[in-house]
Nucleic acid binder design. Structure first.
Lengths: 191, 191
DNA sequence: CGGGCCATGTAATTTGTTACATGATTCC
DNA sequence: GGAATCATGTAACAAATTACATGGCCCG
């Protein structure tokens, strides 16, 4: 049940409403994803169990929640348990099956990945330049951001390399120049 | 509905049984995760809709399935749709909340991440050395493997860097030596 | 006064996990 | 013959998505 802890963790930093929390989980560079229809009931449950409490009521029925001491204790307890390792990356999954597509479609897919990760990197680097972390929470967000940057850089380099691995069909042979050998010599390109 | 396509994609390479598919989704370096209790019903559904068919029956009630032409077409169609981008990385999520833990616990967490990614990298590099991809499917698996390797390397470097950012409590100041400045100068370590 | 966003909720459905259940084969 | 692993399934529950539903506030 990680959504619960994600909500608690964000509320530990500052009081927020369900709507504001939803935006955090929907934003482009989101770390965790969830829809409002999952968040509102979860907030209700958290309040019932005393891990958060409503601290404000604004216009339009806005409810702002803050974490309680029990909530903070729960996050700390959670942080000491081993993290779940269930990875489910659909974009990455598809790479394994690109042999089913033609070289044309495969290249298009990789180009799409390249663009996506370039955009994300760009976004992260903007955040990084604007960043001036003062609070501990902001400092850890900054540390996490560095992971994002390194991650995106790695994937961009990979996508560029991968594009170089799949031949350009429709062009006479010789379109690509020397590819660095990698482990096994004479590795043939796909297709 | 990505599990469906993951199953189809694997069956496109070779006929497999539910049990064998389950192993693929449970293995350490798995790209997608699923339990047998989700896989068996999904296989039944895929068979009913004609995307796969049973091609063999072995001992112990083993059923081996193969993809059909319609199934292959469905994978190709899927590959042309934009990939889902729902990221949910619990281990990464926790980093944002490490300010709630003490420096001691934060360091321990990062050390855990470092170990985990080192082990994975080691595993991937072993696979890479053993790799001799001949079929197109194996070649794309190999290309995907390179992404994994770059990914793990990036995260290992990040974890090492991050460990250097959080002070070692219980030791007199001066335990750490010069940290490279990164963007903003004089950025203070956490806590 | 109308369009866009703020703001919250519930219901229906799908997806995923955990637990329950069973039995065959192989290897020692 | 007993333990490990192969092998498949169902049921109950939890988590997540999609669709339904409603209304207030703000700005032009």
């Amino acid at each position: 049940v990680s959504l619960r802890h994600a909500l608690l963790g964000l509320l530990a930093e500052q009081p927020l409403s369900g709507y504001e929390l939803t935006k955090r989980f929907t934003a482009p560079a989101h770390v965790w994803s969830a829809k409002h229809s999952q968040i509102y009931p979860e907030l209700a449950r958290l309040q019932q169990t005393g891990l958060i409490r409503q601290v404000q009521a604004g216009p339009r029925g806005k409810k702002t929640y803050a974490i309680t001491d029990e909530g903070r204790a729960e996050v700390r307890r959670w942080l000491k348990t081993p993290p779940g390792r269930t990875s489910r990356d659909e974009a990455f999954l598809r790479v394994f099956f690109l042999w089913l597509a033609g070289p044309e479609d495969a290249r298009e897919y990789l180009r799409g990945e390249l663009d996506y990760h370039k955009e994300l990197l760009d976004h992260y680097e903007t955040l990084n330049e604007e960043a001036a972390p003062s609070s501990p929470a902001e400092q850890w967000t900054w540390i996490a951001l560095q992971a994002g940057i390194r991650h995106e850089r790695a994937l961009i380099e990979w996508a560029e390399w991968a594009l170089d691995q799949v031949p350009i069909s429709g062009l006479p042979a010789g379109g690509r120049k020397g590819r660095p050998s990698h482990g096994d010599p004479d590795r043939q390109p796909v297709h």
